[in-house]
Amino acid sequence: MRSSPDPEPRPRPVHGAPAGTGARAPEAPGDAQALRPRVLDVVGIPLALTNYDRTMDWMDAVVRERDKAVVTAAAVHLVMVARENAATRAAISQPHVLAVPDGQPLVWAQKALGHRSASRVYGPDLMAKYLERGTRTGTRHYLYGGRNQGALVQLVNELRRRYPGLQIVGGYSPPFRPLTEDEAAFVVDDVNRSGADVVWVGTGQPKQELWMAEMRDRLDAPILAGVGAAFDFHAGLVPQAPAWMQASGLEWAYRLMHEPRRLWRRYARYNPLFVGAFARQWVEHRRA
Results as ranks from 00 to 15, higher is better:
residue 202 G to P: 08
residue 202 G to V: 10
residue 202 G to M: 10
residue 203 T to G: 13
residue 203 T to S: 12
residue 203 T to Q: 12
residue 204 G to A: 02
residue 205 Q to Y: 12
residue 205 Q to S: 15
residue 206 P to Q: 04
residue 206 P to Y: 10
residue 206 P to F: 07
residue 207 K to I: 15
residue 208 Q to A: 06
residue 208 Q to V: 03
residue 208 Q to C: 06
residue 209 E to R: 02
residue 210 L to A: 02
residue 211 W to N: 10
residue 212 M to A: 04
residue 212 M to Y: 01
residue 212 M to E: 06
residue 212 M to N: 03
residue 213 A to H: 12
residue 213 A to W: 01
residue 214 E to P: 03
residue 214 E to G: 06
residue 215 M to R: 09
residue 216 R to F: 02
residue 217 D to N: 12
residue 218 R to G: 06
residue 219 L to P: 07
residue 219 L to K: 04
residue 220 D to M: 01
residue 220 D to S: 14
residue 221 A to L: 11
residue 221 A to F: 00
residue 222 P to A: 01
residue 222 P to C: 04
residue 224 L to E: 08
residue 224 L to R: 01
residue 225 A to D: 02
residue 225 A to F: 11
residue 226 G to F: 06
residue 227 V to W: 01
residue 227 V to G: 03
residue 227 V to M: 08
residue 227 V to Q: 06
residue 228 G to M: 10
residue 228 G to H: 07
residue 228 G to L: 08
residue 229 A to N: 07
residue 229 A to H: 10
residue 230 A to K: 13
residue 230 A to S: 14
residue 230 A to Q: 04
residue 230 A to N: 10
residue 231 F to R: 13
residue 231 F to W: 12
residue 232 D to N: 08
residue 232 D to A: 03
residue 234 H to Q: 13
residue 235 A to H: 05
residue 235 A to M: 09
residue 236 G to N: 07
residue 236 G to Y: 08
residue 236 G to E: 10
residue 236 G to K: 10
residue 237 L to Q: 14
residue 237 L to I: 13
residue 237 L to W: 07
residue 239 P to E: 13
residue 239 P to A: 13
residue 240 Q to T: 11
residue 240 Q to S: 12
residue 240 Q to Y: 09
residue 240 Q to N: 11
residue 241 A to C: 12
residue 244 W to A: 14
residue 245 M to C: 13
residue 245 M to A: 15
residue 246 Q to W: 02
residue 246 Q to K: 15
residue 246 Q to A: 09
residue 247 A to M: 08
residue 247 A to Y: 05
residue 247 A to F: 07
residue 248 S to L: 15
residue 249 G to C: 05
residue 250 L to R: 15
residue 250 L to M: 15
residue 251 E to T: 10
residue 252 W to M: 09
residue 253 A to D: 00
residue 253 A to V: 12
residue 254 Y to T: 03
residue 254 Y to D: 01
residue 254 Y to E: 04
residue 256 L to T: 02
residue 260 P to L: 00
residue 260 P to A: 02
residue 261 R to P: 03
residue 261 R to L: 10
residue 262 R to G: 00
residue 264 W to A: 03
residue 265 R to Y: 11
residue 265 R to C: 03
residue 265 R to H: 13
residue 266 R to L: 08
